[in-house]
Design a binder for these strands. Structure first.
Length: 289
DNA sequence: AGCTACTCCTGGTAGC
DNA sequence: TGCTACCAGGAGTAGC
């Protein structure tokens, strides 16, 4: 699933091909992708120039202008199976293309998506759309001290919390599982029961996993994620738990366990990530009923 | 408010 | 071989 490292890879690869270019035509094959008819979508973007390409969480943003006047932005999300590439005129994007945007240098920006969950929408005020997102895990706001405090204020299980984009923005199923393993934390551990030292380890683990995955241009373990250059990522070779149920833990050899947490396949090592004891009720006394 | 369950989609796969 | 049933899952939303 495209998460932060995959979207970062997409942004870096398409940036030099689209910044400075002006859209000359737009075609929409699936209306839900754009959230607007082809006519409405085209009227928002045709004639606009791309002034920047950037990432926020798992979103990619193409900031637009008409002349020197800001003209909103294209806000994209790959969800599960979305892909983006910029190709020469006449390139066949295959049967699953959803949006095509012609550029003034003859190339075409394609948004391709087998399962149709992805989005590429024009927004007049893109910052408002992104306002509810939590801190960027590779940004200055995501400090060890912040994570220690943030975890202490939440009683829910770690895994669903780390997947919550309003808590921290950009992590998905793969990188949460990998981060929790590197930090030695059970996915069902209550957030407020994580000791400070473990929370600090989790902070480092998240950053290390994301940086390593960006270095490898993301993870490709099925037919879906490919970089805009058409290549698979390489981080799947460094998975320690994700998609490795039954295989030995790289740390201790214990077979990796798979459970379902919040409707998500969840992979962990029962030895390296022991489940904490149940929360006691009241103020430390044993529950009496 | 915080958490869980459901929904959107369809290619791939398991089972018969 | 061909059919059916089920699985994967990010994020928005409904509901408790």
């Amino acid at each position: 699933m495209p998460e932060l490292p995959e979207v970062e890879t997409v942004v870096r690869m398409i940036r030099p091909k689209v910044v400075g270019r002006t859209f000359t035509a737009a075609r929409v094959a699936w209306k839900r992708t754009t959230g607007a008819s082809e006519r409405a979508f085209a009227s928002s973007v045709v004639g606009a120039r791309v002034v920047a390409v950037r990432r926020r969480a798992k979103y990619f943003v193409l900031d637009l202008a008409r002349g020197e006047t800001p003209a909103g932005a294209l806000l994209g999300h790959l969800r599960m199976t979305g892909r983006v590439h910029v190709e020469h005129a006449g390139y066949d994007p295959g049967p699953y293309w959803k949006v095509a945007l012609d550029l003034d240098d003859g190339a075409t920006f394609h948004f391709v998506d087998v399962r149709k969950f992805g989005r590429l929408e024009w927004k007049r005020d893109v910052e408002r759309e992104l306002a509810d997102l939590g801190p960027e895990p590779l940004g200055d706001g995501f400090t060890s001290a912040w994570l220690v405090r943030a975890l202490a204020s939440r009683r829910g299980a770690l895994k669903p919390l780390l997947l919550d984009q309003t808590f921290v923005a950009g992590l998905g199923n793969i990188y949460v599982d990998e981060s929790l393993h590197r930090a030695g934390l059970h996915p069902l551990a209550p957030a407020d029961r994580v000791p400070r030292e473990r929370a600090e380890r989790l902070h480092s683990a998240i950053r290390e996993v994301l940086l390593a995955a960006i270095e490898r241009e993301g993870s490709s373990f099925d037919v879906f994620y490919r970089t805009p250059e058409g290549q698979p990522g390489g981080f799947q070779d460094e998975f320690r738990v994700y998609d490795r149920a039954g295989e030995p833990c790289t740390t201790c050899g214990t077979p990796i366990t798979r459970i379902v947490v919040g409707q998500r396949g969840t992979h962990f090592c029962t030895s390296c990530q022991p489940r904490p004891r149940r929360r006691s009720s009241g103020t430390g006394k044993r529950a009496t009923g």
